[in-house]
Each structure stands twice: as structure tokens, then as C-alpha cells.
Amino acid sequence: MLTFPSCKINLGLRITEKRADGFHNLQSCFYPVSWGDIVEIIPADEFTFGSSGLAIPGDSQHNLCVKAYNLLKADFDLPFVQMHLHKLVPIGAGLGGGSADAAFVLKSLNEQFGLALGVSTLEDYARLLGSDCAFFIQNRPLYCVEKGDVFSEISVDLKGYHLVLVYPNLAISTAEAYAGVKPHQPTIPLIEQLQMPIGTWRDWVHNDFEDSLFPKYPVLAEIKQQLYDAGAVYASMSGSGSTVYGIFNAPIVVPNQFSAYRVWKGEL
């Protein structure tokens, strides 16, 4: 079975407080984007995992796809499988690529082997793998709070807009990003800000990681300004990684300044 995990962007990301368990509470809207990886899972005589495409650091047995398989195998009589991940979404990019891979493995195993697990159960398994993973079970626009794994409905629809993602070949780890964060409550909850016209988001909808990471990595602020100069109605850093995105009313020619970077564009 082939599956095509998508990534996501964050429409705003406010870090509101540090939790007793060491994590942080946040407010964000996760919005799925069709750029993604490819995962193949087929029955086999023994379990194997391989990858191609972008290099994935670390021991493959610690890959979230492998962890997802082991998590379900501990509770169900899963057969061995041969699993292959073709990696296209950059790592440390703030796009949730690895989280999406894990969530789509859970969904694929559920479907392929008739486990009959519902959405809420799959989300509970996904939460054991990482804070972003549960979002990709439903994989639709959701307002996310607490660790980013508690969801509510939000009426944000960007259909017809065009998206440009710019990854400046710079990986930022989650630990590095959170090290510079200063939690605070926004004066207006993000969910209310996102109900404003998208043309006003530039003045209201903010990613708190920009406050500490833009001074440290000036290229990120430069890309954001270049996207606005190219006509973006809204531009922002995504998540805690280094991808900066721009939302446009119409397709654009990607500026020459981005020629050395990894760029994806498409319609939302």
C-alpha cells in the first residue's frame, strides 16, 4: 500500500505558558499542505525499514514510522511488513513532515490490516509519538491548543489561494527553537485573530518563534520580507522550523533570490 503523507503550515503560533511536564502550551491553526513524502508498506517475512530521497539522520530504528508500527504491533497481531519511506519534506523545517509520516503509517496499517480503529483512537496512538502527530490523523484545518494535540473546529478556508514555501537549507531543532521562547498570553486569542480578513493578518497573526529566531538567523526575516515584496498577502515562519511561507492571491514566479533554496509552490 502506498500512502502520501502531507505536511502542514502554522497559521499563527502563540506560546502561552510552560507546562509542569516541560512542554509548552500553545495556540495555533494547523493547515495541511499537499507537499509530502511517500510511504510504502507491504507484507513481508520479516520487518524491514528503508528510506530514500533526503538523508535522515540517526538510527533508522528510531524513525517515527518504525515507532508507529511497533506501537500498534504491541497491541495487535500485525504481520511483519516491509516499509519504505521516500523523504521529500526537509527535516527541521517546521512543516511536520516526520509527524505526518508516522500518522499516515498508523492510518495505513489500520486500513491495510482491518484494525477498525476510529479517529479518536488513532489520535491517541499518534499523541504517544509526538505533539504534531495527532493532527495528521484528520489532516484538515484545525485550531490546536495545549501541546498542539488538542483540537477544535475553526472556520479558516484558504482554498483558491496560492502558497510558496521557502526552506533556506537550515534545520532548526525543536529544542533550539523553544530555548529562546518567552511564553505569554496574546491580548486577543489567536482563534479570534484568524477570523479577521487575511489582509489584516500581517498586523495580528504572529509566530512567537520569530522573536528569537529572526535575530539569530537573519535570513529568515529576509525571506519573509522578500515574500511580502513579491506580493504575499500574508507571510510567516511555519512551526518551530526554518521554513518561511507566503500566501498569494494568484500564482507567482518565484523570486530569483530563492534559487539556492528548496522551494515548493502550489494551490491551497
Score class of each variant (00 low, 15 high):
residue 39 V to N: 02
residue 198 I to T: 02
residue 112 Q to F: 06
residue 165 L to E: 06
residue 94 G to T: 05
residue 59 D to Q: 08
residue 162 H to Q: 10
residue 235 A to W: 01
residue 159 K to L: 08
residue 65 C to V: 12
residue 106 L to T: 02
residue 188 I to E: 13
residue 37 D to P: 10
residue 239 G to P: 04
residue 113 F to L: 10
residue 57 P to S: 07
residue 72 L to P: 08
residue 211 D to P: 00
residue 102 A to V: 04
residue 70 N to I: 00
residue 267 E to G: 01
residue 106 L to K: 04
residue 10 N to L: 04
residue 17 E to T: 08
residue 230 A to L: 08
residue 8 K to V: 08
residue 234 Y to N: 07
residue 173 S to H: 08
residue 13 L to Q: 06
residue 75 D to T: 02
residue 208 D to F: 09
residue 182 K to M: 13
residue 206 H to V: 13
residue 38 I to V: 13
residue 178 Y to P: 07
residue 229 D to M: 03
residue 242 S to A: 15
residue 244 V to Q: 05
residue 166 V to K: 05
residue 127 R to I: 14
residue 72 L to I: 09
residue 58 G to E: 08
residue 52 S to Q: 13
residue 265 K to T: 11
residue 71 L to F: 07
residue 176 E to F: 03
residue 4 F to L: 12
residue 62 H to C: 09
residue 248 F to N: 06
residue 60 S to R: 11
residue 160 G to S: 13
residue 188 I to A: 10
residue 191 I to G: 00
residue 108 S to R: 13
residue 20 A to K: 15
residue 70 N to T: 11
residue 39 V to S: 05
residue 165 L to P: 08
residue 190 L to K: 01
residue 53 G to A: 12
residue 21 D to C: 12
residue 130 G to L: 04
residue 75 D to Q: 15
residue 159 K to Q: 14
residue 236 S to A: 15
residue 130 G to Y: 02
residue 8 K to S: 08
residue 92 G to R: 01
residue 30 F to S: 01
residue 151 F to R: 02
residue 80 F to D: 14
residue 200 T to A: 11
residue 184 H to M: 09
residue 265 K to L: 04
residue 15 I to D: 03
residue 179 A to N: 12
residue 50 G to Y: 06
residue 227 L to R: 06
residue 179 A to G: 03
residue 66 V to L: 08
residue 66 V to S: 10
residue 46 E to T: 10
residue 205 V to N: 10
residue 99 S to T: 03
residue 70 N to M: 12
residue 68 A to T: 05
residue 99 S to C: 01
residue 211 D to M: 10
residue 63 N to D: 11
residue 32 P to E: 03
residue 193 Q to A: 03
residue 107 K to M: 13
residue 16 T to C: 07
residue 50 G to C: 12
residue 29 C to T: 01
residue 219 V to I: 15
residue 68 A to G: 09
residue 90 P to E: 04
residue 217 Y to M: 09
residue 17 E to R: 15
residue 156 V to G: 00
residue 193 Q to F: 04
residue 215 P to V: 05
residue 214 F to E: 02
